[in-house]
């Protein structure tokens, strides 16, 4: 049984995957003296209408999105789903002529599997585009963290904190939502751990900058130490956000292969 990458995709495709699995088993068990399969023209027409609708909506999405990867990856999924649907139409025609037709059953199973696989490809492509949105926010935070190195006055620090706060809140919210979506327990845990570390380090970074600014402005001893401390915290936060970006791009397949 395929492992689906997110709970949304799993919720949509799992029931169909189960049924197709069931049909295949029955088909193999009953292949020789299988009973006649009833006329499937009606149910196939319903699949055909649903496929046309998905392709129409998908093409609209491809038209409007700025995500070049999605523009590239979606059309092959449409083709797969449409070709599979043609197989179902052929199966229905063959079964109408001969309800015992074994080739028709093969077409029926291949077509159903193709619809499942094509819809899964399409949903994964869409999901990957959603992940890229989260990664863009993470990269924005990574870039803004580097600004910490040039904060040298209290006014700068106030501005820096005011800008960093909302961005961090947005990033945390997006990652927490993403984490809830993942079906892979390890990935969820990795995101949870890294995000927690980043949240804990944020106030540490702000106070490290504050100490650096205070010492620098009074020309007291210890500027180097304060600078090293600020740098350490900044680098630790950056490493954790880079880890979050890495984990966000993992798919179930990567993890299993790695294992």
């Amino acid at each position: 049984m395929p492992v689906f990458h997110t709970k949304t995709i799993e919720g949509i495709l799992e029931p169909v995957a189960q049924q197709i699995c069931h049909l295949v088993i029955m088909h193999e068990e009953g292949e020789v003296d299988g009973k006649a399969i009833p006329d499937l023209t009606g149910p196939v027409a319903a699949v055909q209408a649903a496929v046309s609708n998905l392709v129409r909506v998908g093409k609209e999405t491809v038209q409007t999105t700025e995500d070049q990867v999605m523009k590239r990856d979606m059309p092959p999924a449409f083709i797969k789903v449409e070709n599979s649907c043609s197989k179902l139409v052929q199966a229905a025609q063959m079964l109408k002529a001969d309800p015992y037709s074994v080739p028709a059953r093969d077409y029926l199973i291949d077509g159903s599997r193709g619809i499942l696989s094509g819809t899964s490809d399409l949903l994964l492509t869409f999901d990957e585009a959603e992940v890229r949105k989260v990664i863009r926010v993470c990269k924005g935070i990574l870039e803004y963290l580097t600004v910490a190195e040039v904060v040298e006055t209290m006014e700068d620090l106030i501005t820096y904190t005011k800008n960093l706060g909302p961005g961090m809140t947005k990033m945390s919210k997006m990652i927490e939502e993403r984490q809830q979506e993942l079906t892979h327990q390890e990935h969820r845990q990795m995101l949870f751990n890294s995000l927690n570390t980043v949240k804990q380090l944020l106030p540490v970074l702000i106070s490290a900058i504050k100490i650096f600014v205070a010492i620098k402005s009074t020309h007291s001893a210890g500027v180097d130490e304060a600078e090293r401390n600020r740098c350490f915290t900044f680098e630790k936060m950056s490493a954790e956000i880079s880890e979050i970006i890495r984990v966000l791009q993992l798919t179930t397949w990567d993890e299993d292969t790695w294992a």
């Binding site: 169909v16 299988g34 009833p38 149910p43 998908g58 949903l123």
Partner: peptide, 29 residues
């Protein structure tokens, strides 16, 4: 959202199709 809804209706339609095809086979098994 539109894509998810469209994918859900494909899944439902495919489910119904497979169910009707399996119905005939079930008697046998």
């Amino acid at each position: 959202e539109q894509i998810l809804e469209a994918a859900k209706s494909i899944a439902a339609a495919t489910s119904a199709l497979v169910k009707s095809a399996s119905a005939a086979q079930r008697e046998l098994v």
